[in-house]
Computed example of a mutant assay.
Amino acid sequence: MALKLKTRRSVSAPSSAPRQFKAIILNSVFSDWSQDDTILSEECLTRMKRGLGIVGIEATVVQVKRDIAGPLKKFDPREYVVFNWAEGIDGEPNAYDKVPPVLEELGFAHTGSDAWALAASADKAFTKKLLLENRIPTPVSKTYERAALNGWRRYPALVKPATEHCSFGITRDAVVDSPQQLKERIQYVLDTWKCPALVEDFIDGQEFNVSVWGNGESAQVLPISMMDYSAFPDYHDRLCTFDAKWNPDSEAYRLTAVQCPALLDKTLKRRIERVALATYKALKIRDYGRVDMRVRNNVPYVLDVNANPDITMEGGFARSCRAAGFDYGQSIAKILTFAAERMPAL
């Protein structure tokens, strides 16, 4: 899948002083949601709005399907900052990059990355290219549009959809040990996810989720989380599968522990922080993001980059914020404050 990257643009130059503002929580609604999906979305929105209210920020929830601009036209961009919690548009659930241009055309400052960074980080093959160009360690990889191995000889290998997120397609079967298993898994990705397969060297080492927030030279690494896979003797299970992330009834979810802040020696901690900040800069991530990595021989290798990562109360980013001393409302307010620096002039 070709990545179409447009010229980056911003709403305005950052202002020199903090602005008072109200918040719009922009959230997607999808026609294929189940009743449980709808209930969960409403609970998350209620929590965010309540958290902002506690810290003194008036917030209005705006839910959209395909028309993003219409519901926002009654709001003044000089008074409101948009918390962009829209995960695409109805019928295109992964079209994160289609939302920022609409907000910017209306004149709104919004949280999170622009269309370029969202598109770049969503394409795992393009992300790899950027990492290598910036000399950031990442596992050796190849992208396949058909199940021909083309000289791949590194095993075990991890096979994942090149343009999916949220660990879609990541199960224990995604870790393969032979050419035959590799061919079968590539074909599975092509048939099931309708996108190229990314194959990479599987690093059976410590895994870290590194949350970063802020912009430019002021970007900061929040307390680092370490995934604890010690309950799994088989390395095929020592990875963050879809079930481990999202299915509370699964063994993977129950047995995967998280240590935050991770207990690290100073040298390794500094290395992880440097790699995370370099990645944040290379992908032009804005306001907040997360970098996932594994360590082999004390070298942190970047596995995945998340612009606008999961920001729910139970998610990894909020966990790191809590470890840094910020409750949920304070964390969301902090991200909004970063975006408020881009509000149009009064």
Rank of each mutant, 00 (worst) to 15 (best):
S41T: 10
L255H: 07
K266D: 14
G214I: 05
S10G: 09
I311Q: 01
P101D: 08
E104R: 06
F326C: 09
A262Y: 00
L346G: 13
G316D: 01
D234T: 00
S16H: 15
H110K: 06
V102C: 02
A339L: 06
L103T: 03
I39D: 12
R270V: 12
V61H: 10
K6P: 06
A59P: 04
E207W: 03
C321N: 13
D177V: 00
K160D: 05
A318H: 08
S28P: 03
A148F: 11
K194W: 11
I54Y: 07
L3E: 12
D191T: 13
R286W: 13
V82A: 08
L336Q: 02
V189G: 03
L118P: 09
I25L: 15
L132A: 14
H110Y: 14
L277Y: 08
F232I: 12
E341M: 10
C44R: 15
S15F: 12
A345M: 11
G325N: 14
E105D: 13
S141M: 09
E79F: 12
S113Q: 07
D310Q: 14
A324P: 04
I170P: 07
R254N: 10
C166M: 13
E200G: 15
A262I: 05
D173K: 05
A119G: 10
W213K: 00
F108W: 09
A307D: 03
N215K: 06
N306L: 05
Q259N: 11
Y235W: 09
N209D: 15
G88W: 04
F242E: 13
L118F: 12
A174Y: 02
K98Q: 12
I203K: 00
R66S: 03
K73G: 07
K266E: 12
R286V: 10
Y253E: 06
K281M: 00
R274W: 01
V305D: 06
R286F: 05
S141I: 02
D249Y: 08
P156Q: 05
G169E: 05
V175Q: 00
A95I: 12
P18L: 15
D37M: 04
T7R: 14
L222R: 07
T60Q: 15
L118W: 02
Q35D: 07
A95V: 09
P196K: 08
T279C: 01
L336I: 14
V305E: 00
C166I: 14
G325T: 10
K183A: 13
Y80S: 08
L182I: 00
